[in-house]
Write a protein that binds this DNA or RNA. Structure first.
Length: 264
DNA sequence: ATCGGTACCTGCACGC
DNA sequence: TGCGTGCAGGTACCGA
């Protein structure tokens, strides 16, 4: 579930709380979610001071000093709850000198990893979808093969976009999700970049989209789902032309678009 | 080097 | 009520 706006919202709720706290204890309850040895990791971060927290794409990065970074990816159903209560889906628990952080994740697609340098998977991420300048976006798009939707979802191309915001962005830009990336006119590339930025900014302003699981670091739901124009609205009328919104599958992902408004 | 397909895991909605 | 099916915001890995 969590895409850039959701992770950014979690970041903003945790940013005032975590830095300056000291790790008293870290417990890991799932070897699926935890990358590496739980006992070893726990020992490694115990006693450390949280120096800062940042977002890279859909990853949250906790700076624990001395070349130690705790990276958290929320997967599809991950939640980080400040002062949360452990429950049946709790996969990790961080106890600080004051306060605690609970990581819940029913499907266990999320990942928690401690490393010295930045892990390769994070170093490989493309520029942030929220802040990439138009010229750089256009330059990276140049010469790319394949369909535009899978490319926007490719975290090495740009980081942060997921299924919801890709569909919403393409609708706003009036571009068909199967359009060939290499064939987009400069005008369409400009529109696509602008739409992406507007959608992501609006979603962040609404605290993200809460469809089933997502809540921020204080357990509060977002409200951008009420502004979705096409995502999850197959069969409903297009807000622009009134025709039915269609759902197809592209790269194994449910894809929602308006066949009238979005042309290849 | 890139793709498309599959796998990972749990919960829920839906139809019968 | 219960069961089978399909679907879900994500990424990683496989072989072509």
């Amino acid at each position: 579930m969590p895409e850039l706006p959701e992770v950014e919202t979690v970041l903003r709720t945790l940013e005032p709380r975590l830095p300056g706290r000291r790790v008293i204890e870290a417990r890991f309850y799932s070897s699926l979610v935890m990358r590496g040895d739980a006992a070893e990791t726990s020992k490694r971060i115990r006693g450390r001071l949280i120096r800062g927290i940042a977002r890279r794409g859909k990853f949250l990065l906790l700076d624990l000093g001395e070349d130690t970074t705790l990276a958290i990816h929320l997967g599809m159903t991950g939640r980080l709850i400040w002062q949360g209560t452990p429950g049946p889906h709790t996969r990790a628990l961080f106890v600080f000198d004051r306060g605690r952080l609970v990581y819940d994740d029913p499907r266990q697609f999320g990942r928690i990893e401690v490393s010295a340098a930045l892990p390769a998977r994070i170093a490989r991420l493309g520029p942030d979808a929220l802040s990439i300048p138009e010229a750089e976006f256009a330059a990276r798009l140049r010469g790319r093969r394949g369909l535009i939707k899978p490319l926007l979802l490719n975290q090495a191309f740009i980081s942060g976009m997921g299924n919801i915001y890709t569909d919403e962005t393409l609708f706003r830009a009036r571009i068909h999700p199967r359009a060939l990336a290499s064939r987009l006119s400069p005008e369409r590339v400009r529109r696509l970049h602008q739409a992406m930025r507007e959608i992501l900014e609006a979603a962040v302003a609404s605290g993200g989209s809460s469809i089933a699981d997502y809540v921020d670091g204080d357990g509060r739901a977002g409200s951008f789902q009420f502004q979705h124009q096409v995502y999850g609205r197959a069969g409903e009328p297009c807000p622009a032309c009134g025709g039915p919104i269609r759902r197809i599958v592209i790269a194994q992902r449910g894809t929602h678009y308006c066949p009238k408004c979005q042309r290849a």
